[in-house]
Design a protein around this nucleic acid. Structure first.
Length: 424
DNA sequence: TCTGGGGTCCTGAGCCGG
DNA sequence: TCTGCCGGCTCAGGACCC
């Protein structure tokens, strides 16, 4: 987490746990656990000979970016989200590995199981981090929140062979900040009574939701630290940056964050996108890619028992301008051919010609398959759904390449141009 | 340096119906 | 019948997070 790099050193030293000793953790029921350089750490666990070399995990193609870098690689300035080509110039001797998401998912499941063994109130944010509310577990375990943090750190290392950092605080936001500040392999406790003392010296970029653009806007208003945001009258802040953002940032800056840990969260959209190695202007190739992405997206819907109503496509041109176009269907669907039909229509009718760098498909307005409005019985899509469900089953038994749309079997763009799906 | 891929949330414009 | 207002919905774009 790059945000911690700019934070005042004194704070880190004051609140960091050291030699089994940490500040007063009374009332600190929120834990944020963040795995250290997760993908890189998993790769090193699999190949211990990489332990003492810089390791970078990310897209290894010409347009890839860094997903994760171990701390040895970071010493050379390598950061996540940096183009891999740039990383190679900074650390030419590092080991560069393509990501293995299945492996990281498996380790993540093991880590989350450890968390759930401690408390049922676990809210995963991604593969490598989660919030835990340990308020109900204190008595059962006979530990304070800091003790639970240390228990988690030792169990994750012993069971999964990777290290993590833990933030302990009275709110989610403070716990998350704390875990970022004690990385790697550390723990930090922010006493409830010291929340503002901890928070106010931080730069505005430490606030959740403040990226480069918003930080620049705030700085233009003379707001450089979290204390500056908390000191500005809320009505003025609302006028300057909009109601929702102002209220969100003002609350965080004032130490107010009453969000609870929510163990179950439903997805709101599912999609897939792809950046081409070389820009593509050929419409037939673009449609073919849309079919592939429609298959991936709708396949995820079916696997999760979901339907979606709005199909949107995203097109990024060579100059990096990006447009999205969407259409809402009268009834929700999980049928690849239906998603593809809308996506291709949007491409044909609403996207101007040009060199395309990235194309994507996303399905929004999700609903459970059983509660979603069903397609009418005689609709032509019904035949497609049955065919696709059979194909899904074949893929789960024989692998992802076992069954694919005919137009994806060959590299011939001419075929794609002629592709007009018809149910058997 | 030259910018991935998976998402979420917010804002504002336009349209429509009450 | 016309007009204004308001709320809900859809769509597009932008910012942000990991």
């Amino acid at each position: 987490m790059g945000r911690s790099a700019n934070l005042p050193r004194g704070l880190v030293d004051r609140f960091r746990a050291r030699d089994g000793v940490w500040p007063d953790d009374t009332g600190c029921r929120m834990l944020h656990v963040d795995m250290d350089a997760f993908y890189a750490s998993v790769e090193i666990r699999e190949r211990p000979e990489l332990e003492s070399v810089p390791v970078v995990v990310g897209g290894v193609g010409g347009r890839g970016v860094v997903s994760s870098a171990n701390y040895l690689a970071r010493e050379y300035g390598v950061r996540s989200a940096m183009p891999t080509a740039h990383a190679r110039r900074l650390a030419p001797h590092a080991v560069y590995l393509p990501p293995q998401f299945d492996l990281y998912q498996e380790v993540s499941r093991g880590v989350m199981a450890i968390f759930r063994d401690i408390t049922p109130l676990v809210e995963p944010l991604s593969l490598d981090e989660a919030f835990l509310d340990v308020g109900g577990a204190l008595r059962r375990l006979g530990l304070t929140p800091g003790g639970i943090g240390e228990l988690i750190r030792s169990r994750v290392l012993a069971d999964q062979g990777v290290s993590c950092s833990v933030g302990v605080a009275s709110t989610k936001f403070l716990a998350k900040l704390a875990s970022g500040m004690c990385k790697p392999d550390g723990m930090m406790v922010v006493p409830a009574a010291a929340s503002l003392e901890f928070l106010h010296p931080l730069p505005v970029s430490a606030l959740w939701g403040v990226g480069a653009k918003t930080a620049a806007r705030l700085e233009a208003l003379g707001l450089e630290t979290v204390a500056d945001v908390a000191a500005m009258p809320l009505p003025r802040l609302r006028r300057k940056i909009g109601v929702a953002l102002a209220e969100h940032l003002y609350a965080l800056a004032s130490g107010v964050d009453d969000r609870a840990v929510v163990p179950e969260s439903r997805e709101k959209s599912i999609g897939a996108e792809e950046t081409f190695e070389v820009d593509v202007a050929d419409r037939a190739l673009l449609r073919r890619e849309l079919l592939r992405l429609s298959e991936r997206s709708a396949g995820s819907l079916r696997a999760k028992g979901l339907h979606g109503r709005t199909v949107s496509i995203k097109v990024r041109f060579s100059d990096f301008t990006t447009i999205t176009r969407s259409r809402t269907l009268p009834v929700s669907t999980d049928v690849t051919q239906e998603v593809y039909r809308v996506a291709a229509e949007l491409l044909d009718t609403q996207v101007p010609p040009g060199d395309v760098r990235l194309i994507g498909v996303r399905i929004e307005g999700l609903d459970n398959a059983d509660s979603a409005q069903q397609l009418i019985f005689d609709a032509p899509e019904r035949g497609w759904r049955e065919a696709e469900q059979a194909a899904d089953q074949a893929r789960s038994r024989f692998g992802s390449l076992a069954v694919r749309p005919a137009s994806l079997l060959r590299d011939s763009p001419e075929r794609t141009a002629d592709f007009e799906p018809k149910p058997e």
